[in-house]
């Protein structure tokens, strides 16, 4: 192939290297301006395009690295935001608890729920404060929205709180508007009901039900719920059927405050 393409070179085999050598010496002996000009052409043709492409790839790599770093920072920021959101929510709940202490004028013992019921029907929770913190049986356990239950058993560092949704729970309650009294209890079929209210009593849907203080277990005036349904004569001719929607969302309980009755 070389013999075809460089046929003239082959014919002048001796002259060709000599010609290139002479050309080299001409380059060596050429003035500096000429050398710089030729060097500039060489750089522009062979080095600069490759340098530019290399630079672009390096930039691309840097951008990718930067994007990866930003992505990691974004994930970190998301986690922090989630943490701060939780902290804000916790702060809000704690403020609500603090306002409860002012509202009821009683000493409140803060408690965290550390164990939920093992059995779905068992409606009690374990909290992380016990007799060491001054918790005693039958103390009221309140949530920001209202009464959650009462302390059933007390250990050194923990206690069991019976929630209002326990079928065996009973609370003396009163209609905040008409002052009609009844017993608030829970059964799995009807939900929370206000029992023992005669049919002729003045109860209306939307009335707020609070603790009456009768019996001495719960202080008076702790919100319990709102009358959601009022019906006469369906189950009994003597007592009204009153369904109460509790204020406390029992499935979302995280913290409770135990009301120290002795501090009254």
């Amino acid at each position: 192939m070389a013999s075809i393409q460089f046929g003239s070179v082959r014919r002048n085999r001796a002259l060709f290297p000599i010609g290139l050598i002479i050309l080299s010496f001409l380059l060596i002996l050429s003035p500096m301006g000429m050398k710089e000009y030729i060097a500039e052409i060489g750089i522009e043709i062979f080095y600069l395009p490759i340098e530019n492409i290399k630079g672009k790839f390096e930039d691309l790599y840097k951008v990718r690295e930067h994007a990866r770093r930003l992505e990691a920072e974004l994930e970190k920021a998301k986690l922090q935001l989630s943490y701060f959101t939780d902290a804000v929510e916790e702060n809000r709940r704690l403020r609500e608890f603090l306002s409860l202490e002012t509202d009821y004028g009683l000493k409140l013992i803060p408690a965290e729920i550390v164990k939920l019921p093992d059995i779905p029907n068992q409606c009690s929770v374990i909290i992380n404060v016990g007799s060491d913190f001054g918790v005693r049986p039958d103390m009221a356990a309140i949530a920001p929205d209202g009464l959650a239950g009462k302390v059933k058993r007390v250990y050194d560092n923990s206690s069991e709180v019976q929630l209002l949704i326990d079928p065996s729970s009973r609370v003396s309650a009163v209609d905040n508007r008409s002052r009609v009294q009844g017993i608030l209890k829970f059964n799995p079929i009807d939900g929370m009901i206000l029992d023992n209210v005669p049919v002729h009593e003045d109860i209306a849907e939307g009335d707020t039900i609070k603790t009456s203080g009768v019996g001495g277990v719960f202080p008076q005036g702790i919100p319990l719920g709102v009358v959601a349904h009022f019906k006469i004569g369906s189950t009994s001719y003597f007592f009204a059927e009153i369904k109460v929607e509790p204020f406390v969302k029992f499935s979302r309980l995280e913290r409770l405050f135990i009301m120290d009755n002795a501090s009254r």
Binding site: P17, L20, I21, L23, S24, F25, L26, L27, I28, L29, S30, M32, K35, E36, I38, A39, E40, I41, G42, I43, F46, Y47
Partner: peptide
């Protein structure tokens, strides 16, 4: 050689000669 010497224009031609 010319391409190599482009980086040092003062020596332009020497590398061309040597490689040649």
């Amino acid at each position: 050689g010319v391409v190599v010497d482009s980086m040092v224009p003062g020596n332009l031609g020497w590398s061309a000669l040597l490689y040649l």
